[in-house]
Design a protein around this nucleic acid. Sequence first.
DNA 1: CTTACAATTATTGTATACAATAAATTTGAC
DNA 2: GTCAAATTTATTGTATACAATAATTGTAAG
Lengths: 215, 215
Amino acid sequence: MGLRRADKIAETLEQLVFSGEYSDGERLDELKLAEQFSVSRTPIREAFQVLVASGLAEQIPRRGVFVRQPGPVELMEMFETMAELEAACGRLAALRMTEGGLQDLAQANENCQQALNDLDYGRYYSENEKFHQVIYRGSANSYLEKQALQLQNRLRPYRKMQLRFRGRLAQSMAEHLEIVSALQAADAEQVARALRSHVTVQGEKFHRLMASLKS
Amino acid sequence: MGLRRADKIAETLEQLVFSGEYSDGERLDELKLAEQFSVSRTPIREAFQVLVASGLAEQIPRRGVFVRQPGPVELMEMFETMAELEAACGRLAALRMTEGGLQDLAQANENCQQALNDLDYGRYYSENEKFHQVIYRGSANSYLEKQALQLQNRLRPYRKMQLRFRGRLAQSMAEHLEIVSALQAADAEQVARALRSHVTVQGEKFHRLMASLKS
DNA sequence: CTTACAATTATTGTATACAATAAATTTGAC
DNA sequence: GTCAAATTTATTGTATACAATAATTGTAAG
């Protein structure tokens, strides 16, 4: 599976946009990037198309492409959409999850608890992601799963901000348990409700997120 | 707002893929397309990136790009995801829809009824789309709205197949009324339920869709 | 000093040229 | 005649060259 230079560049640029290396509205300079990547403008331009298509940048004809960092409003909208996608996955998973899937879920939750016991935030974070991914998978709808994974990926940097504050992790674990038992009980509505409120950003979470955006 | 040649080409190719002009697995020939559009390979290749990014084609390095028409399974998954997205829009719209939004909805439904009275299937189809779009808008979440619009657009050709068969339109209208009244009553769960089952493809609809795929 | 216009520069968009790799075809051994 | 290796051909990926348009600077009039 040969990789094209352009694809690798697109991936790298994506990471740079995610990590906040480029701020909102900043223009992506073809020539400068071509130099940096030791490549001609062509693969850079092809990489741009990928960024633009995924909404990470905007292209204005004859002007250039400009990175688009989501503002507070769009961010909230994305989180809300994520909550609804998760709820949808959960509702379907409640009806379709296999015994093996439920075991994976229990294991994933176990790993979260372990990380929490060790106060290993980084590991809790990644195990938590896996926990949710088991649910996406459990929906038995690979199209929906892909959508959920995509948005999860897009929101990762912001989720990272909001997870590590006092009491949040314990509460998060409690919610996980509620989700797990609802899934075991195959109670679709309960799963959807639990996941929606687990993911939704409001109250204190909202203020934390807004505060962290300013930095 | 100058348009780039490559963007226009991407749009055209999208339509060609949608309309079934290209079948699944078919390779998109750069040179042939360059000739057809009277253009060099460069803008063709840039257009390809757009198609690939939106999942309409797959790119295999050093091999070419190949159109990806959804098979029966993926199609069902997409419809199911659409149902969940619509339910999500509806649930939010139930809480947020303005008086003006409700009026737009009533008007859109009125137009559907009118088209149905005239037995104008084409118009019913487009008015029906507008009806749903009012709900997307009603969610007051432009990110979610965009996702819904995107999938609606992607599913259009298949939806067209399944709408025109005996009795379906009358039933569809009845469901619309249920949706409208639930929205007026601001009953989020009821709206979500009604929209989900309205959009879901199952039973007779499923068989129709499968049958039409073979042609 | 400000404004408007002209000339210059920079940057994007497209065409062509070249390089690298995969597909196809030919050739030769068995 | 069949299979395999080698050669040719076709096609993709990248670099460069050119064209078109937008941004910038400079200049002169008021």
